[in-house]
Amino acid sequence: MTEKTQTPGARAEIDVRGLHKSFGANEVLRGIDLEIKQGEVVCVIGPSGSGKSTLLRCVNLLEEPSKGQVFVGGAELTDPDVDIDAVRRRIGMVFQQFNLFPHLTVTENLTLPQRRVLGRDKAAAAKVAAENLERVGLSEKASAYPASLSGGQQQRVAIARALAMGPDVMLFDEPTSALDPELVGDVLAVMRMLANEGMTMMVVTHEMTFAREVADRVVFMDGGVIVEDGTPDQVIGNPRHERTRHFLSRLLDPAMAEVEEEDSAP
């Protein structure tokens, strides 16, 4: 937290320093320091309103931080002179609501950004698109429109679209929260595959099983600060803070949590 220079070797792919974010009078992030190393998979968990999605969105500047610095791949995003579009090309983002382009086919969703942003020619973009659709197991949907796909399929296409840009980092903003339960597994399988391939990933999620099995680190946020940061076994298996324990118990067994809440009330 105190080191202010880039150390080669153990390179920090994402480096967040002293980050604050307010919406009007509402301070959502109150000083976040977070470093994610190359190839690391970090899951960010926490109750709704804890600021975890805002933190993720600050990492590719979809939200403008009020204070603090964000570095991705060594480039400072919060520097006013930085070419934000160039930095964003290295950061893939997956949204809760998929945000596929509905007026384009699956293949066009993958090829248009490559051609317009990276300047790839049609054939090269199509080749990359086909490869990435195969990675997420949706080659047969290449010419379908997003509206004809299930939520899980749409999310896998969204992941493929981000991957087609060849990012160094992938950000996931509650990627399975909008899905029917039976469709969650396919999306998590794709994310697991990515993690195994060594992709640097920052995942805001409620999927504790995924976090436990796939994440290198779990970060618990509450009230705009990082409360706990450690291995999955530490944070999920053996949380040190009461707030973490409370959150986890509510998440794992909502009915039990209600009883506890009434118990703790005077």
């Binding site: 590719n60 579009d85 964003r88 950061i91 893939g92 983002m93 945000n99 596929l100 317009r116 840009m165």
Partner: peptide, 24 residues
Amino acid sequence: GQMEAARSLGFSPARAMISIIIPQ
């Protein structure tokens, strides 16, 4: 979300407007 998706893929605001938003 359409503009956000386009921007996060590296589209400039003008390009996102022309390629993604206006056709829709």
